[in-house]
Amino acid sequence: MTDQLVLKVEDLKVYFPVKKGLLKRTVGHVKAVDGVSFEIKQGETFGLVGESGCGKTTIGKAIVHLEPAFAGKIYYKEQEITNLSEAEMRPYRATTQMIFQDPYSSLNPRMTVANIIAEPIRFHRPDADVTAEITAYLEMAGLRKECMLRYPHEFSGGQRQRIGIARALACRPEIIIADEPVSALDVSIQSQIINLLKRLQRELGLSYLFIAHDLSVVKHISDRIGVMYLGCLMEVATTKELYNNPLHPYTQALFASVPIPDPRKRSAKVPLQGEIPSPLNVPPGCKFQTRCPYATELCRDRVPQLEQVGDGHLVACHHWNNLHKK
C-alpha cells in the first residue's frame, strides 16, 4: 500500500426520479446515495457494508458511470471523471473495472471464454498478442488454458467468477470494484475466490472497492470499512478499529447480529428491532433514528455529520461520545 490516492469520491449523490401520472412528471426522488465521501489509496481495499437498499451497489455503479451522478465529484487520481462524456472517459475506462455478484448473468452465454477475455484486450490494446495474453490472464485467475474454447454454461459458479475476474484483469486495471463477488457462491468456493482476490492485490498492486453485505467477508478482506445505511455513510474506520471500537449504534448492532459459527457463543438477544425504512420515505434527522435505541429529540431534528473521532475514524452520530463513555 502506498499513500497515493487512486479514487476519491466527494459528496456523491445518486438520485432516481420517481415518476407519476400520465405525463410521467417527476414528483420526487429516491435518494439511493445521499452525500457519500471516501477515498481509496493505491493497493488498499475499502469495504462498503450495509443492508439491502442502502445504496452500496449504486455507489459502485456511479463510479463506473453505469448510473449518472446527481451531484458530487468522483476523481481518478487527480482527474475528475464525474461528468465526462463516453469519449472523454475512454482513456480512464480500463483503469476501473467491475466484478459482479451473479456469476450466471455476468458472462455472455453466446461467447467462448477466449472471446470474453479477448474483447477488452482487442479493444484497449489492438497490437497485443491476444492468445498469449488470454492464457496469461486465465492462469492468473487460476484457470487452465484448455477452458478457452468452452462456453460459460459449462462452468460452475466459482469458475465463472474466475472468468469474470480474468476479464476484468485483461483491462490491466488499477481499481477493481467488486460488487458482492462471493455472496452467490458456496462456502468452500467463497474462500477460494477471496484468497484469489487477495493474491492478485499483492501481485498487481490493485485497489479494491469491496461491496458486500456479509460483515465477516468484508472484515477479512478490507483494510478500511465504511458502514452504510439508507444512502449515507454512518461510520468509516480501519478494519481493526471498527471491529474493536465500533462507535455508531448501527455498526454495533450490525456486528452483534452476525451469527457466530460456534454454539458456545450463542446469544439470546436480538440486537436490532424493526425494519429498514423505505427509501421513498426516509425519516428526518438521523436516518437511523427509527431503529436506534439511543435516539433523542436531537436525532429527530438534525442530521448528524461525519466527524473525525480518531485517526481516520469517522462517525455520524450525535451521541457517539456519550455512548462511548458508557
Binding site: 468452500s188 487477495k198 465477516s216 472484515k219
Partner: peptide, 24 residues
C-alpha cells in the same frame, strides 16, 4: 473441518483462509 476453516469469521483473526481444493 475444511468447511469450518474456510469460513471468514468475525470473532477470530485469520491471515489466509483455508481452501478446499477443487469443486463439488
Amino acid at each position: 473441518d475444511g468447511l469450518k476453516k474456510s469460513m471468514p469469521r468475525l470473532d477470530i483473526e485469520q491471515e489466509e483462509l483455508y481452501t478446499i481444493a477443487g469443486m463439488v
